[in-house]
Every structure is written in structure tokens, then in C-alpha cells.
């Protein structure tokens, strides 16, 4: 029997079946994650449909520069993660660790930028809650006077956008922190020599999770930062 047999759990017929089972389980979990974030995206769509101008004005206060920078950082981290999985497939333990460390560093850069952005919003009183303060500046060309912007609760609608911003990016950031935890676990396992060409399922499954987190951001970036740029 091949040495891969030692990693084969007794309830599976073959390594291939075992590998496919873990992938299927992970994809079922990710389908559930699509539903979880999906609820937030649907709620966002309803209110953007309802208050398009408030969402456009509110989005204008987000920094496209930081948002685009973080998009690039996260896509780079997806690449290093994909290469970590490839290193695992090739059985290159040293490269698995190198690529995972690179992914973790990029994730920390992303979270650091998010921290800078949150702090900025806090100082501008744009965090939803009792301290939230927004006065539309009708004199500047940025806020046109329309039936929607002249609504007495226009500031409340702007606050609603920021509620979505903080909940959606916050849940996304929480997923990244969990991903960082998983990667620390992977490094420990890799250092103990637990991975081989035959067995690397934890690396592959963490990779799937990480790419999913990347996909969520791919949608969050245009929907939050690019509403009103023209």
C-alpha cells in the first residue's frame, strides 16, 4: 500500500474520496456563508434602492484610495494563499510556511488600514449611534437639493449607510481575524511536519475560506466605496 494510506481515515475508501469529502463539506459551509453575508447584501440593496442619494452622499466620505489599496492587498493575499496550497500539493513544506506568513502579513496590513479608516470615521462623528453627526452641505456642489436630500431625516438615512458600512466591513474583518487564527494553526501543523503530498486538506480548506473572504471584499469595495464618484 502507498504511504498515503496512513492518512486515510477508516471510513473512506480512498484518498480521493477523502479529499472530495472535505472539499464538499467546506463548500457546504461556504454556501451557508453566502447566505449569511447575503442577508446583509439584500438589506443593503433594499435601502440603497430606497435612499439612493443618501447612500451616494455617505459613500463620498469613504476614502477610495484606502479602499482600492486594501482591495489590492487582499487580492495579493489570495495569490499567496493559492501558492501556499500549490506548495502543499507539491509537498514543499518550507514554501507552505513562507506563503502562509506572507498571507498573514498582507492580512495584517488590510486590518491595519481598516483600523485607520475606522478611527477617521470616529473623529468625523460618522459612527452610527448617539454621537453620529451629519449636516448636509447644500452650498457645496456635493449635495444637490432634491426631495430626498431635503427630507428632515436625511442625516438618518446617511447614518443608515454607515450602519451597513460598519456591520458589513466589521463582519468581514472578523472573518479575516478567524482566518489569521486558522493560519497560525496551519503553521504549527506544518512545523510539526504533519503535511505531505498525500495529506494537506487543512491547507486547502483554509485556502477556500480565505478566497471566500476575498470574494466578499470584491463585492463590498464597489458597493460601499464607489457609489458616487462621477
Amino acid at each position: 500500500m502507498a504511504d498515503g494510506q496512513s492518512h486515510l481515515a477508516h471510513h473512506f475508501d480512498s484518498m480521493e474520496q477523502q479529499r472530495e469529502s472535505s472539499s464538499l463539506g467546506m463548500w457546504l459551509f461556504l454556501a451557508q456563508e453566502v447566505m449569511f453575508f447575503g442577508g446583509l447584501f439584500v438589506a443593503y440593496a433594499i435601502y440603497r434602492f430606497k435612499y439612493p442619494e443618501a447612500f451616494a452622499v455617505a459613500s463620498g466620505y469613504l476614502s477610495v484610495g484606502w479602499g482600492a489599496f486594501n482591495t489590492v492587498v487582499l487580492i495579493c493575499s489570495s495569490l499567496t494563499m493559492a501558492l501556499a496550497v500549490r506548495a502543499a500539493q507539491l509537498g514543499d513544506k518550507k514554501k507552505i510556511i513562507q506563503y502562509i506568513v506572507a498571507t498573514m502579513l498582507l492580512a495584517c496590513v488590510f486590518l491595519g488600514v481598516k483600523g485607520v479608516e475606522y478611527t477617521e470615521k470616529y473623529h468625523h462623528d460618522l459612527v452610527p449611534g448617539p454621537a453620529f453627526q451629519y449636516v448636509p452641505d447644500f452650498d457645496a456642489y456635493t449635495v444637490p437639493v432634491t426631495a430626498e436630500t431635503a427630507h428632515p431625516n436625511f442625516a438618518g438615512h446617511v447614518q443608515l449607510f454607515y450602519s451597513f458600512y460598519f456591520v458589513m466591513t466589521g463582519m468581514h474583518a472578523l472573518h479575516m481575524v478567524i482566518g489569521l487564527g486558522l493560519m497560525i494553526w496551519l503553521i504549527v501543523k506544518a512545523l510539526r511536519g504533519r503535511f505531505s503530498r498525500e495529506y494537506y486538506a487543512p491547507v486547502e480548506m483554509t485556502g477556500l475560506y480565505w478566497h471566500f473572504v476575498d470574494i466578499v471584499w470584491i463585492f463590498l469595495f464597489p458597493l460601499l466605496y464607489l457609489v458616487w464618484r462621477h
Binding site: F41, S78, H211
Partner: peptide, 30 residues
């Protein structure tokens, strides 16, 4: 990202189906 980074292009049909199901249900909800 799904096809190449997440290897769905090279995976079994059932993986493809599961991946698609999540998004199809999301589009239905939306």
C-alpha cells in the same frame, strides 16, 4: 477566483453544484 484560486474548474461536479447552489439561492433571495 472561484474557478482558479478555489480549484472549482478542476473539481468534481458535485463541488461545482454546491458552489453554484449558494449563489443561485442568494440571487433568488435578492
Amino acid at each position: 477566483v472561484i474557478l482558479y484560486f478555489m480549484h472549482v474548474k478542476y473539481s468534481a461536479k458535485i463541488i461545482w453544484l454546491t458552489a453554484a447552489a449558494g449563489f443561485v439561492w442568494f440571487i433568488l433571495m435578492l
